[in-house]
């Protein structure tokens, strides 16, 4: 399932969406950048409440398929600009981490069978 399909299924709002075809291989949740650096795997969608600039850098470095910002304030304009510049898919939702993880987990686990 690609990022565009995930975005549509979860009703995500695009903040920066340069690579909608990126394949979403799984999910990862953390609000700690150090954990994301250490534990996230390439192709995963990262769900987080963090929305500062370093999130983009971590997503780029770890080759994540997308970052989903859970409910919270709108990210600063420079965060969106940086994501666009670095080619990082950055989307947001009004739902919390638990709900986003739950729905994405369900979506990905039934994805292959429904193909």
């Amino acid at each position: 399932m690609n990022a565009r399909e995930v975005a549509r299924a979860l009703g995500l709002e695009a903040v920066a969406f340069p690579h909608p075809e990126a394949e979403v291989e799984g999910g990862f949740c953390s609000d700690l950048l150090s954990r994301a650096m250490a534990e996230a795997s390439p192709g995963e969608a990262w769900i987080t409440y963090q929305r500062h600039l370093n999130v983009v850098a971590v997503a780029k470095l770890k080759e994540l398929s997308m970052v989903i910002l859970a409910r919270g304030p709108e990210p600063e304009p420079e965060v969106a600009a940086r994501a666009e510049e670095e080619g990082v898919n950055l989307l947001r939702s009004g739902a919390g981490m638990f709900e986003l993880a739950g729905r994405l987990y369900t979506l990905l686990s039934r994805g292959p069978r429904n193909r």
């Binding site: 990862f28 769900i47 919390g96 709900e99 739950g102 994405l104 987990y105 686990s109």
Partner: peptide, 21 residues
């Protein structure tokens, strides 16, 4: 966290409501 939330959500645990931003 992802798998934990996923498992619990798929077994019917619902998300809490938050104060709207």
């Amino acid at each position: 966290m992802f798998e934990t939330c996923g498992l619990l959500y798929s077994r019917g645990l619902r998300p809490t409501r938050f104060r709207r931003v």
